[in-house]
Simulated scan of single mutants.
Amino acid sequence: MLKHIPPIISPELMKIMMEMGHGDELVLADGNFPAASSARRLLRADGHGVPELLDAILAFYPLDTYVAHPVTLMAVVPGDSVGQPAIWDEYRSIVSKHGDDRGFEYAERFDFYERAKEAYAIVATSERALYANIILKKGVIPSQ
């Protein structure tokens, strides 16, 4: 154990975040996402939801400031009766709390899958909300 690192951040997840470079992407996948068949590197966060993990990650993970939208959500499939997922408002609040108000990019379902296959890592969660998948593009920490 280390001080100030939330227990939801596993040693493996902390290692992955530290290995990642500028522009690399991290996927937080809901429980329905085909994480194992898509991942280059698969991390398990069983028993956890995406919002609590997102909040813990953003305490350490700089979002890319060189792109318009460093956060991408899977767009609702046209014709799906789900409507706008309520979890997106929760994500907006969490991302804003950590200092980013640029809004989100929305990727069509199969485009999201293809992008996830190229991501540095996928974190598989037990999130039950539909359309709860999120991609985070890593930024840089400016020199002081």
Rank of each mutant, 00 (worst) to 15 (best):
L136I: 05
H98L: 08
I135W: 04
V140K: 10
P62K: 05
Q144Y: 06
E52K: 04
A59H: 10
R115D: 06
R41N: 14
V50L: 06
T72N: 00
I16F: 01
G31W: 00
V77Y: 14
L73W: 04
K97W: 09
Y106F: 15
L13V: 08
A45S: 14
Q84A: 12
L54E: 08
L26K: 03
Y120Q: 06
S96R: 15
Y113W: 13
F104C: 05
A75L: 07
K138G: 05
P85F: 02
P51A: 09
L43E: 07
L42N: 10
G31Y: 02
S126Q: 01
A86N: 03
D111W: 00
D30M: 02
I87M: 05
V76L: 12
L43C: 02
S143G: 02
F112S: 14
A121D: 12
A116W: 01
R44K: 13
D89S: 15
I9Y: 03
D46F: 00
G79Q: 12
V77L: 14
I135C: 11
R109F: 03
D100S: 13
L136E: 09
S81E: 15
D46E: 12
N133Y: 04
P62I: 01
R102A: 02
Y120I: 00
R102F: 01
G23I: 04
K15E: 14
G99M: 10
A107I: 03
I135H: 03
M1F: 10
D101Q: 08
V140Y: 01
A29F: 01
A86E: 11
D55F: 00
T65E: 13
P78K: 10
L136M: 09
A132S: 14
E105R: 11
E127H: 01
Q144R: 11
F60N: 08
E127R: 02
A129V: 00
R44H: 11
G99T: 09
A59Q: 15
A119Q: 09
L28H: 02
P7I: 15
A56D: 13
E114D: 15
L53E: 07
P142M: 03
S81W: 01
D80K: 00
Y106M: 14
I134C: 12
K97Q: 12
P34Q: 10
E105Y: 03
V140C: 09
V82K: 08
L26I: 07
K97F: 08
L54H: 05
E19I: 05
A35M: 08
M17G: 06
I141P: 05
K97R: 14
A39K: 05
H4W: 04
A124S: 15
R40P: 00
H98Y: 09
H4G: 04
Y131F: 14
L28K: 02
H48K: 14
V140R: 08
A129E: 09
Y106P: 00
M14F: 12
L2C: 10
V50W: 07
V76G: 07
A36M: 10
T65P: 02
A129H: 07
E52V: 07
A124P: 01
V77S: 13
A116T: 12
L43S: 06
H22V: 05
P6R: 15
V140I: 09
S93D: 14
P34C: 12
Y61G: 01
K15C: 03
L43F: 02
P7H: 14
D64P: 02
V76W: 09
